[in-house]
Design a protein around this nucleic acid. Sequence first.
DNA 1: GGTCCGAGTTCCAATATTTGAAACTTGGTT
DNA 2: AACCAAGTTTCAAATATTGGAACTCGGACC
Lengths: 279, 279
Amino acid sequence: MGEASQLTPKEDQMAAAADGTVGKALDVLEQVSGFGRPVRFSEVLSQSDLPKPTLYRFMQTLTNQRMLEYDPDRQTYAPGTRLVRLAHSAWSQSSLAQVAGDHLHALSEATGETVHLAKLDHAHVLYLDKRNAAQPVEMYSQAGKIGPAYCTGVGKVMLAFLPEDSAEVVMAQQSFHRYTEATLTSPSALRAEFPGIRENGYGFDREEHEPGIICIAVPILTEGHRLLGALSVTSTTDRTNLAGLEKQADRLKSTARAIATEAQAWSFPDHMTLKQTGP
Amino acid sequence: MGEASQLTPKEDQMAAAADGTVGKALDVLEQVSGFGRPVRFSEVLSQSDLPKPTLYRFMQTLTNQRMLEYDPDRQTYAPGTRLVRLAHSAWSQSSLAQVAGDHLHALSEATGETVHLAKLDHAHVLYLDKRNAAQPVEMYSQAGKIGPAYCTGVGKVMLAFLPEDSAEVVMAQQSFHRYTEATLTSPSALRAEFPGIRENGYGFDREEHEPGIICIAVPILTEGHRLLGALSVTSTTDRTNLAGLEKQADRLKSTARAIATEAQAWSFPDHMTLKQTGP
DNA sequence: GGTCCGAGTTCCAATATTTGAAACTTGGTT
DNA sequence: AACCAAGTTTCAAATATTGGAACTCGGACC
């Protein structure tokens, strides 16, 4: 059992709770990945509650399967590149990410600010895409990155539009680190914001995660009110303020609606022959 | 078995084939991902040789583990976003990708062309990074994307610098589709290029994959001559020719050497704060 | 040179898990 | 109402996983 690991919120007792051998193997993968750097077998062993031969076999299997990669020079394991390939496939099949691309671009052009597309993963916010007004697309520099749910615009908005019991479960898993003065550090503080967010249809990040950084976020909902993700426009207190961001609310909402509609209608046009291209 | 297998000896035909339950589960994941679009359970079933309940349980497990995602509206499965998260971790831990970033940028600035970083994954070329010049080439490739090994600059160069038996194994797995007039469509045609590539230390793509697209590529090798990946500069026949690209050979080689050195020296200066950014 | 030590690896019988034929449920169609 | 296909559950038999213990290997330290 690990002690305080670096960024993981409360380790979810039931979620990671292995279903079967596959679950345990994936736990090992997650653990290696969680180190954030290549690790020796013994390092993983000391953090794992699996017996030595069992862990050893899992790591062998995962390495065989290229989910882990072994560096023979350093004798370390790191998450394997098969993951990168699979993730590319996952990302390009995500109707949300695919459909949203153009909308994000348009939004960042129109506002001149950075735009994020995110969804809820486990108990974290997972960023699916990001557009800077000036810069072109960056792939995994930002896509795939995770952030806290309780102190980001997208996170709070998604919580507010989640079924109440689900939201409670997610909130129970937050670590509530106080990043700034403004960070909300309890479920009740969060809960208090929800009615307002639900009524307006948007929410703010009031420098709750980083000083000087503010944002406005809206949920992306299906017609059946199922939560698909969220959208945000970020700026700094140097350039604008909450009232300024609020002016973008309608544009954000209609973009989110458009994305939701297209994502649902998206019947996978086969024009993306996932055949290989490039030199 | 149990021989020291450095790079997939011969088991590779059945490569994905079973290592135990975990292997089978990952096969299922790969299969779903291979569809390239969300799929129904029965579609997977008809393409799998697993019995119905077995496949069913695997897909349940994978869904529980968020390696797959189930769309209740459409009743389809697609690769899950947990993969995107894990891949982000894999990518950011890949010393190659991390270390190469600045070099790629410099190279694309200096040459004004598109630069690719790739490694060998299974029998494919897997692109780890790409930098566009100001005027990007008409082409689509990004991190996580795979391409053929036998008709790309990076692929051929990597094959040439692989131990002979490994190269043969990889070549035996190529499909040798004739993309263009110039495509090499047999192991022997490939083999004939290797001595030249090894002697020069670089290789070309002579419009073998896409008409009008040419490139020069060099391998990235450790001091112990272990193959880490490859690097390429791509252009079009409109803008230059092979002789023109060849002028970049020395710059490419020294960049590759620098990347290799840094990648090996990279002892993980704990830049691992993993601090989450973005609202 | 020998001995000790810890990391990594293999063995193998006890045990818990996976397995899949068959039966059942669900939702849509004739 | 009867039918069919897709998806889900059951349960004993078959099999894979498990982990204590013993072994190998290479380096550190007398």
